[in-house]
Each structure stands twice: as C-alpha cells, then as structure tokens.
C-alpha cells in the first residue's frame, strides 16, 4: 500500500489520482473528528472540504522529515475545526455543551476482547484516561478551549489544568505508541 507521505509527494507533482486516493484513505477518519469538534454536519462538511483542498494546494510544503502524513493532515483538520468553533463562539453563539455531556456520551470502559484490535485500542485511548484527564483533553482538543478557559470552566487553578493536560498527553502517547 502506498504510504500517505508518498501520496502527498505525488499530489505535489500534480497527480490528481493521488489526491483521490489520499481523500479516500483519510476522509472517513478526519470527518468524525471534525464533526465531533464543530458539532454540525454542514459545518463539518465545509471544514473537511477546506482541509483537503488545502492539502492539495499545499502538498509541496509537506516535509516527511517533520512528521507523518497523518499528523500533517490531522493537525490541519483540527486547527480548521477549532477555528470554526471559535469563530462561531465569537459570533455570539455562546452555547457550549456542559462538560458532562461529552463525557457521558463516551462509551463505557471496553472489555478485554475489543481491546485486541489496534484501532479499538487507540479509539478507546481517550476513554481509558482518568476522568479528570479525559475532561481536560476533551475541552482542549474537541472544544477548542485554551488552558485559561478550561481553568475558568472547571474552577481549577491554571497549574492544575496544565498538569492534567500533560499527564493526559503522556498516557495517550503510551497507548498510541507505534509498535
């Protein structure tokens, strides 16, 4: 299977088929993340289109030495999605779902059998975090709140929020570590 990095290199050379393959490989993985952040199907569709269009236009800027194709794409997707959420929030649509809602929606702890599969393990990486860490990651990654906003939201000292974010990230890193 052609690697994501190789597809991007071909896109940079103007290979439109490579773009179609790139889209087919990643769109279904990017879309749920964007949707979870922007929480609106139409907005999510816009963001996904914007992200892949930028990938086509900016393919020549991809430097494999600086990171994987996945990180390149997901960082952009997440950034665009958060931009959208923050723009909506600035427009005065101040509704932000209560913290518990996102957490309550998370599936219950996985049983041993489902953990066997790679993707399931990664998928549940977030759910396996202690509640306090999962909460801050949820607010930062999926709600686009900054550390100060999270501290205010949770009525916790800024230092506590930072520590939780750092610990959560370390736990995630252990779980998703390439084998």
């Amino acid at each position: 299977m052609t690697g994501g990095g190789e597809l991007i290199r071909r896109m940079a050379a103007g290979d439109r088929d490579a773009f179609a393959r790139f889209y087919d490989r990643y769109a279904a993985l990017v879309y749920p993340v964007v949707l979870r952040i922007v929480r609106d199907a139409a907005d999510a569709g816009d963001v996904v289109q914007e992200v892949f269009w930028e990938s086509w236009q900016g393919a020549a800027a991809y430097d494999p030495a600086r990171g994987s194709a996945e990180a390149w794409l997901f960082t952009r997707a997440r950034t665009r999605a958060i931009d959208r959420v923050r723009a909506v929030r600035r427009r005065g649509e101040t509704f932000v779902a209560p913290v518990d809602e996102g957490l309550a929606a998370a599936p219950a702890a996985p049983d041993a059998a489902t953990q066997a599969e790679d993707r399931s393990i990664v998928m549940r990486a977030l759910e396996r975090l202690p509640d306090a860490q999962r909460e801050v990651i949820e607010l930062a990654y999926y709600r686009g709140l900054t550390q100060t906003e999270i501290a205010a939201r949770l009525a916790q000292p800024l230092g506590t929020v930072k520590t939780r974010l750092r610990l959560a990230l370390e736990r995630l890193r252990e779980v998703v570590k390439p084998t």
Binding site: E70, R119, A125, Y141
Partner: peptide
C-alpha cells in the same frame, strides 16, 4: 500522538 489518537475512532464517510 494527537493525530493517532484522533484517527483511531470509528470511520464515518463525509
């Protein structure tokens, strides 16, 4: 890390 964690969810085609 974040990309790998994020893309690990169930796929949904746009």
């Amino acid at each position: 890390t974040l990309a790998r964690a994020a893309m690990g969810g169930p796929p949904t085609a746009p």
